[in-house]
Amino acid sequence: MAGLELLSDQGYRVDGRRAGELRKIQARMGVFAQADGSAYIEQGNTKALAVVYGPHEIRGSRARALPDRALVNCQYSSATFSTGERKRRPHGDRKSCEMGLQLRQTFEAAILTQLHPRSQIDIYVQVLQADGGTYAACVNAATLAVLDAGIPMRDFVCACSAGFVDGTALADLSHVEEAAGGPQLALALLPASGQIALLEMDARLHEDHLERVLEAAAQAARDVHTLLDRVVRQHVREASILLGD
């Protein structure tokens, strides 16, 4: 590849990470008081906010209500200043709609929707700064927000992206690595069972390599789970101190 070297001979990436290393993750639950659940996550320079409302009565047309389970409604938007070049619209464009659908698919697989028939759960995700791996950051933030809202889930949903450069699988791609082209894999994992909630792969990759890339993404997602679990436990501990138990 001309110009930028994504992986040095010593095995370091552009930002100094090893191949399977994640960027620094910092997260917080319960950011807003008025929403039922909310969370904020920073993965490197990618920053995302997620807010959950519900389960509540179906808004708008009653015809949308599902008799046997809850309707999961997702909206993805990214702030006009989140990208390098200013965006004209925060949501409603093709990429945002697609991302909304992907999030919906992911969370329908994880939330125990049959417990709340004829109701609706809203998940709104807002990207404040985009530096690669926005889908993963959104899923991780939304998981924390759903947990904060106290909505029963099968398991955490942990997401991570992975790429493939010079015969090595790279976990948690940054914007520079994404922009260089090459194969990209987005994975949402239910870590306890090892089930996959969403899998998407762009560009061309030889079948023989797929397993390695998948394993790198899954391992990264399991690492994310460890971190998110710590955040949730910390949050619950703080909340219980406030309640005085």
Binding site: S38, L49, V51, S77, T80, P90, D122, Y124
Partner: peptide, 12 residues
């Protein structure tokens, strides 16, 4: 941008 984060009425 009145995002849906603020209240679900701002969705879409």
């Amino acid at each position: 941008d009145c995002s849906a984060n603020a209240t679900p009425e701002f969705e879409g």
